[in-house]
Design a protein around this nucleic acid. Structure first.
Lengths: 193, 193
DNA sequence: TTAATTTTGAAACGATCATTTCAATAAGAT
DNA sequence: ATCTTATTGAAATGATCGTTTCAAAATTAA
């Protein structure tokens, strides 16, 4: 049997995520990744294949971490209204603690690479499906509970909410005024009631 | 008197804009710009200084072209409601004709570089001020005309609209379904009435 | 037509790019 | 303890990066 990986893959992914998030895909060099992970070049290639495939793993890692956070918060929500508030507040917290204005890794990557790399494009399509399915579930529940109106279908509201989150994250890059952002969320979600 | 530039600066900027828009700042090489503009390397450096300063000029050029389109459309609007519709429809048209899913150059650049390059950050801050001021004007007018409600100040609605536009443009990268997008715009703007 | 000045073209700059190579090292299996 | 196999470390790969150099070409004023 061979020698096994000595490094902690999760820790390496965390470090790589940090670099890609800060500098973007094209702005990140292999040297940056070597420095950040303190792994050897050949270990990175041996374990992750290439810069692109490492980035795709980073993207999935980032997504799964945030999905976990979402789900942990969502199970605590009593109703659909609270669920929506929970999701927006999680994003608000991310914005406020993002001192170096990196924005959202997934959104950044979508705007940088979705038109150039098919693997990224399909990742983003799946991401959109997931997000819209999640919002659709919540809105459907809210409409059955008579908390949300029925002016639009749950699917249409889901697209609206997904769009709004992306707008909020883009705003959050430059604007960290919590009061303004909370009011922006208030306006955004008011349409549901 | 010296020999003057023989090339058409606007045409060169158009070509450079195309490349930067398609590939992003870090994804664009000087060779790409040489190829696209069919200018010589030294002519580019002589006339634009550096890759970054050329990009900043491209960014201003892109912004001014779109401002002109905005203003041409806005003067034709009879009231605030039409003005808002005009703005969203211009973005919708941009999305639909954007066959290679490049998205919006300004938004892409904001997410790629606002946290890394101070000149880009301040460009984006000014861009936000402009956009919000424009929306604020329209909303104020709409509120005076009693077409829009007074639930929120014009400035708060302006931030909401600016955020919504960015969300719409991010959605538009992958989703070109005109019916869905029109409905998204309908939901987004409904809050004003 | 000559002097002054700037844009050009082509080549070269050192630095950095992503990736590969390969011998040395390490660890489980026999 | 030895064999097998994979992970390491360090160096090198050729290509490309943004930028500079400088002589030749081009243009206008005198």
């Amino acid at each position: 049997m061979p020698k096994e990986e000595t490094f902690n893959r999760v820790q390496v992914l965390e470090k790589a995520t940090e670099v890609f998030h800060k500098k973007g895909y094209n702005g990140t060099s292999m040297q940056d990744l070597v420095d950040a992970t303190s792994l050897n070049r050949s270990s990175i290639y041996n374990s992750f294949g290439s810069k692109l495939s490492m980035f795709l793993e980073v993207l999935s890692f980032y997504q799964s971490v945030h999905s976990t956070n979402f789900n942990q918060a969502l199970v605590k929500s009593y109703n659909a209204k609270e669920a929506i508030e929970t999701i927006f507040n999680l994003h608000l917290n991310e914005i406020i603690k993002d001192n170096d204005r990196k924005g959202c890794l997934v959104i950044n990557c979508k705007s940088e690479m979705a038109n150039q790399e098919v693997s990224i494009k399909s990742f983003m399509e799946k991401n959109q499906e997931r997000m819209i399915a999640m919002f659709e579930d919540i809105v459907t529940k809210g409409q059955m509970e008579k908390i949300f109106n029925q002016d639009q279908t749950a699917n249409q509201y889901a697209l609206y909410l997904f769009s709004s989150i992306q707008g909020l994250r883009m705003i959050g890059i430059l604007n960290k005024n919590e009061k303004e952002l909370k009011n922006l969320i208030y306006i955004t979600t008011k349409i549901l009631y």
